[in-house]
Design a protein around this nucleic acid. Structure first.
Lengths: 118, 118
DNA sequence: TAAACATATGAGCAATTGCTCATATGAAAG
DNA sequence: CTTTCATATGAGCAATTGCTCATATGTTTA
């Protein structure tokens, strides 16, 4: 048997359940993608950026001002959010306006807030 | 003005919007709690543990076997999930059975999966 | 063209994280 | 009580992360 997985005694009571669960598991890759997605929401700076974009598109320096953080810090995080396709942007002269990429972001954050307020 | 926040030129076009957004921001603490919550879902091991508990309560070694990881690694993560109140447990002799603490966990994970599959 | 401004990005660093390994705890069986 | 088995936990380490600081890029204006 696999050396890496210690296990309860042979003929273990819960084995059938393990089989069932194992069969219904999504692909490893999907679950990793899911973790990557939630990782985006797992940092307070990024949560704040996303929340701030709920109401309006904003430029980098506006966000920095709202969160009282440096332009650089915000820009780095926007890059990450952009890669995760959670925000999109639009250039207008020197200014770059960011906004939520889709409505799921709003839904996911609101769902989390609901969970907290119970 | 605040030294830490660089800002666009004085009399900036988007200032009114900034005011509005600022007024509607939830407390710092709530957004931090929200980030803490999502941090739990932001690791593939924890996501897998939670997913595996969708169908049935399982003991630590069953989970370890399912995920092909060590008992120790799983136990450490279960501790974290327990602290976040995402799982609960029940002792039966030597065995400890873990299960999802509430239905929100299922909902949140499913919502993320939906977002990925579009 | 040069200067000014908004944003992006690379290097570096301190803090956090997720594991391993060894060991402790707690419960049942001998 | 002692052993065995299931689980919990502390120390330590490598990898990741989120920031700062300096600087690069891109756009407008003089």
């Amino acid at each position: 048997m696999d050396e890496k997985t210690p296990h309860c005694a042979e003929g273990h009571v819960h084995e059938p359940i393990v089989e069932t669960v194992n069969a219904s598991m999504p692909d490893e890759e999907i679950l990793c993608d899911l973790a990557e997605l939630y990782k985006m929401f797992g940092d307070s700076t990024r949560i704040k950026i996303l929340y701030v974009l709920f109401e309006a598109e904003l430029c980098v320096c506006d966000i920095a001002e709202l969160l009282n953080m440096t332009q650089s810090a915000i820009s780095h995080q926007l890059r990450v959010l952009k890669q995760a396709k959670l925000v999109k942007f639009r250039r207008d002269g020197k200014t770059v306006f960011y906004s939520l990429a889709d409505d799921h972001v709003r839904t996911i954050i609101n769902m989390g807030l609901e969970h907290l307020c119970e």
